[in-house]
Design a protein around this nucleic acid. Structure first.
Lengths: 212, 212
DNA sequence: GGAGTTACGCTACGGCTCGTAGCGTAAGAG
DNA sequence: CTCTTACGCTACGAGCCGTAGCGTAACTCC
């Protein structure tokens, strides 16, 4: 869960009436519902508060605005991504790509992810929030998959710490970026045939020698 | 230029006062300026009309709304992408990736591209507009690069028409998607070192045998 | 040169959303 | 029981939206 990265301010004081956790859940769920029905541009704070059965002021007490609210609402969706050990690097990649594609088929995820990234181009704080709430969460899967592949002997161990880190970042961007682009920009289906083709290309790329 | 895909309706009749081409240019330029200064969410039609020195009603006579206007305003930026023949497939790829990265460093391109894609997830017409105005324009470069590589003997000629088309689409999504993801989601620099590493990975991937 | 047609600028408008302020009440901590 | 904080509700000025209506400007065809 995401409760570690709180939205605004339970200042650290512990006296007084505590914030309603139920309200938090209701708001985030209502936000996702509203995203499905209205999309990003037509989603309003007032509408969300009505759906959640909370006062509009309560929303503003916890989130600075639409951007922050939606990031948190969507971040939870990425918790569902997992990396079951399917025995080979190729199978692991195909599995996680298909999971990611399924996630991007959900309208609230499609809409919100792109919209929030768009806003983050002008908002440093939002960028950080996306990194910790979404990017890092996905990147863990890449790290895990890589370790497994190394344990299996499919990929070489990398001495240089910093180079290994760059490689991980590269693979992550290739996988996530390609799938997102295919699904949302090109608007083409991410089906099993495509995934197999893409994975094959990626596998050959990874077999190649380490670059300078 | 983009004049082929007109915005709204010069119905086909030829009598009466013609639309001001200067106004068109001024509006699109003003839109880009406003995107740089305000970003997507704070950009308003009224503000654009003021900057362009036209009446707000003129904007609505030509574009249905913010989405359509911004697509056209940004599409022009993609005209600058070219594919000079640098002698090898690897060099060609590196060149176009660096160009694309430079384009994505422009704030109006960063912001608008993602925002428009986000809106397009709920708008079929907008999706088509993006495909014809932006996607197809980039994909031509991939087709051209592939043909050159085949002429050089770097890539095999593909008998199957349909498979060749799928491969082209895949390469396009890998290149564009990865670069966009690196630049906008991961928020890491697309520098020459990274481009070289990425290109090396892609080259090895392309050397592999054609998939089933 | 006049008639017909279309684009433009300007003004004004109802409707909606925003984000905040103020108040009285509810819910835990000590 | 008191203190502190969260909550619900109402009301508000401000800003933007998208459209309608009008008079004027530009261009074509007769």
């Amino acid at each position: 869960m995401v409760s570690a990265m709180r939205n605004a301010s339970p200042p650290t004081g512990r006296t007084g009436r505590p914030r309603s956790a139920a309200a938090d859940a209701a708001i985030l769920a209502a936000t996702r519902d509203a995203l499905v029905e209205l999309g990003w541009s037509k989603l309003t704070m007032g509408d969300v508060s009505t759906r959640a059965g909370v006062a509009k002021t309560t929303l503003y007490r916890r989130w600075a605005g639409k951007n922050e609210l939606v990031v948190d609402a969507v971040a939870e969706l990425f918790d569902s991504l997992e990396l079951p050990d399917r025995g080979s690097l190729e199978a692991d990649i195909e599995d996680v790509v298909l999971q990611f594609a399924a996630l991007l088929r959900r309208p609230e995820a499609r809409t919100a992810l792109m919209a929030v990234v768009a806003e983050s181009t002008r908002d440093e704080a939002l960028r950080d929030r996306i990194r910790s709430a979404i990017v890092d969460r996905q990147k863990r899967l890449v790290v895990l998959g890589r370790e497994r592949a190394q344990a299996r002997g499919e990929l070489p161990y990398e001495e240089d710490e910093e180079l290994a880190c760059r490689t991980t970042d590269l693979i992550f961007d290739v996988i996530a970026g390609t799938v997102v682009h295919r699904a949302l920009v090109s608007s083409e289906p991410v089906d099993e045939l495509w995934v197999a083709t893409f994975t094959a290309l990626l596998m050959h790329g990874l077999q190649g020698p380490a670059p300078a």
